[in-house]
């Protein structure tokens, strides 16, 4: 699924990475626990999370995650944006709950990691 389609499906705001909206992500994973995210062996996935801090971006960097959706209207700080920018990570903010976000994206065809 193209990142642009994810943004449209979630009525989200692209905070960072507008130039990457035509890129594809095949699978999604939702968690507020970064330890869980670090156990994934799949790369190039969409991370759906309500945890907005620097370690969210560090985790994405280590796990080769290129796009993050911040749910529940969580806002990112300039420190988070700088780090994500350095690592070429797209950040989307969305006001839906994690449950609704996952439901909409699943319905739209985004696959689960497992």
């Amino acid at each position: 699924m193209k990142i642009a389609e994810i943004v449209k499906t979630l009525d989200g705001s692209v905070i960072l990475g507008k130039e990457n909206l035509e890129k594809d992500v095949e699978m999604g994973f939702a968690s507020d626990l970064m330890s869980d995210v670090l156990t994934l062996q799949t790369s190039n996935i969409l991370l759906i999370t309500g945890l907005s801090n620097v370690q969210t971006i560090r985790t994405a960097e280590m796990a080769d995650i290129t796009c993050i959706v911040m749910v529940r209207n969580k806002k990112v700080t300039s420190e988070i944006i700088d780090l994500a920018n350095e690592n070429n990570i797209v950040i989307i903010e969305c006001c839906y709950s994690m449950f609704k976000t996952c439901g909409l994206l699943f319905q739209a065809g985004l696959k689960p990691v497992y």
């Binding site: 370690q55 960097e61 280590m62 080769d64």
Partner: peptide
Amino acid sequence: FSRAGNASSQLKKLLKQLNVDSQLIKRIVV
């Protein structure tokens, strides 16, 4: 906590420069 991950980040960049396989890099830096 603001700096946790800096070492891993630097090592990742270095291993990329050394053309190490991306799956192996991920295992090492995770």
